[in-house]
């Protein structure tokens, strides 16, 4: 059964004790979204349709300002489409829960690491004992058990992003929505967190929609890469990535198809970046 997810309608929490939640499916159907700008309306997302299967790992890449974050926020219910609709459904008719991992510093600085992870559980009214148990399991999953009582400002950027991921996983979401979660990290930390994310995804069977502008990151993670064009934001191409799983940084890069896929995606993106520069130049003239 498909559950129509009205953008701000409350979605009932999945029972928190179910452990691995399985995946949700997403059907984005001819969705558009405009924002009021200083020189009239800006079309952020224009007539986009996208299907994501249960348990699929989809990565959206595109130049800056192509509306990929807006698309993700609409799937999360944080923005309302102007036209079109977004359907989110779970295979077992359960209400769908999504959890978003945001760009930058989204960990609450006024809560300790463990209180951050337990935030969603507390809002769901989960018992304290269960909150404690889940939080400690998740902290050991992301390797932060020793820092349970620490304040976020005492952690590194990479550790804070681990907290954000643990906080999202705590509510057993069937779908993880990730908006450039590793964008601010140094390369080594990013590689490690990508591998950790793959491990978690393989264990939970979640659906993941992941936004990035790194082609490398997209190829490492995705079942399918969606390339978006800018101004207005449209889907330009969808490229399946059939590298073997389980993956890690080494196996992905040694796959003979890596270079070919990289070239395909880069040539698509290059057109977009050049087009964006041309139109910016015209506006200056």
């Amino acid at each position: 059964m498909a559950v129509a997810l009205a953008p701000h309608a409350p979605v009932i929490a999945a029972p928190a004790s179910t452990g691995a939640a399985g995946g949700a499916a997403v059907a984005v159907d001819r969705v558009s979204r405009t924002f009021a700008g200083p020189h009239g309306d800006v079309v952020a997302v224009d007539d986009v349709s996208l299907d994501v299967a249960e348990g699929e790992f989809v990565v959206i890449v595109g130049p800056s300002g192509c509306g990929k974050t807006t698309l993700l926020r609409m799937i999360a219910g944080l923005e309302t489409p102007i036209t079109g609709r977004i359907l989110v459904s779970a295979p077992d008719n359960r209400p769908v829960r999504n959890a978003m991992v945001f760009q930058g510093r989204s960990v609450f600085p006024w809560l300790s690491v463990e209180a951050n992870v337990a935030y969603g559980l507390k809002l769901d009214g989960v018992s304290r004992a269960e909150q404690r148990e889940k939080t400690s399991n998740l902290l050991s999953l992301v390797g932060l058990s020793r820092f349970a009582k620490a304040w976020p400002h005492q952690l590194s950027e990479g550790m804070r992003q681990r907290v954000a991921i643990a906080r999202a996983l705590a509510v057993d979401p069937q779908m993880l929505l990730m908006d450039e979660p590793f964008g601010a990290l140094d390369e080594q930390t990013r590689f490690i967190l990508q591998e950790e994310l793959l491990r978690i995804w393989e264990a939970t069977g979640n659906t993941v929609v992941f936004v990035t502008h790194s082609i490398d990151e997209a190829l490492t993670l995705a079942d399918r890469v969606v390339v978006m064009s800018a101004q207005p934001g449209r889907i330009k191409a969808e490229i399946p990535i059939a590298f073997d799983r389980p993956r890690d940084q080494a196996t992905v890069r040694s796959d003979p198809r890596f270079a070919e896929k990289f070239a395909t995606i880069w040539s698509l993106l290059k057109e977009e970046v050049q087009e964006a520069r041309r139109s910016a130049g015209e506006m200056v003239r």
């Binding site: 701000h8 409350p10 979605v11 929490a13 926020r73 999360a76 219910g77 944080l78 999504n98 959890a99 978003m100 945001f102 760009q103 930058g104 510093r105 989204s106 609450f108 935030y119 969603g120 809002l123 906080r167 509510v171």
Partner: peptide, 19 residues
């Protein structure tokens, strides 16, 4: 982003205010 996080976890207005 903090409000977005709270909304994403379906915080009520009261929870948004005090939390």
């Amino acid at each position: 982003v903090y409000r977005d996080v709270a909304h994403n976890f379906q915080a009520s207005r009261t929870q948004l205010f005090f939390g």
